[in-house]
Amino acid sequence: MFEAKLTDGTIFKKIIEAIKDLVTDVNIDATPTGLSLQAMDSSHVALVNLHLGMEGFERYRCDRNLTLGISITNLAKVMKLVNQNDSITLKCEDEPTYLTIVCQNQKHDRTTQFNVNLITLDSEHLGIPETEYTSEITMNSGEFSKLCKELYALSETVEFEISTTFVKFAVEGEIGSGSIKIQTSADEAETSRPEDTVKLSFALRYLNLFNKAYSLSNQVKLSMAAETPLVVEYEVESLGTLKYYLAPKITD
């Protein structure tokens, strides 16, 4: 059997909220070491990669590997039943046809249970090659979310330039062009060598969808390398990571 309990059920609710506009039907892989999910959006331009380690759960048991095909759209509807401060338990049998979700409030006087029907999906698993990222930067997730929203009003596309010490977001649209440069480190030792920077352009529409995850973490990590998808990574405290990959725009 499989059973996983999170004391703070709203974390799981936020994760589902943060991916529901990108992916619809997904396979959640439950293994003895944790839960993971990898799915692409319908246009194959963005990929969601979630890993939650067993040690972050209050209780975790998974006797054998299970693939749980689930509609994220429907799961998001069920998540509306999760209230602030509720715990959440996910459980199923070994050959499951449904996933049971149990939410309980802190006083233990209110319990909600729902069985979500499982679906069979072709798994289209993509192997993400080991990548040496040229540029990595961690910044405030709220700030990143806000600036992506504002830049989207000015342009559909943003050009990223990131290094070890700064990140620059440049846009060019019908009304003009501009950029936001954020200095993130004043470490002299770091700047003594020439900085490697990479410039890549991305669709702001997708970045805004990724930013629905900003409430999961105060920080967001951006990783870039030439001709490689951007990685936007949110650490889910003590539980795991939620990563989004986005294909760069290219001049045809």
Partner: peptide, 14 residues
């Protein structure tokens, strides 16, 4: 003209 290559071309089908 901007286009986006599918992720399938960067990642490996397994």
């Amino acid at each position: 003209n901007w286009t986006q290559r599918d992720l399938d071309q960067y990642f490996i089908q397994v």
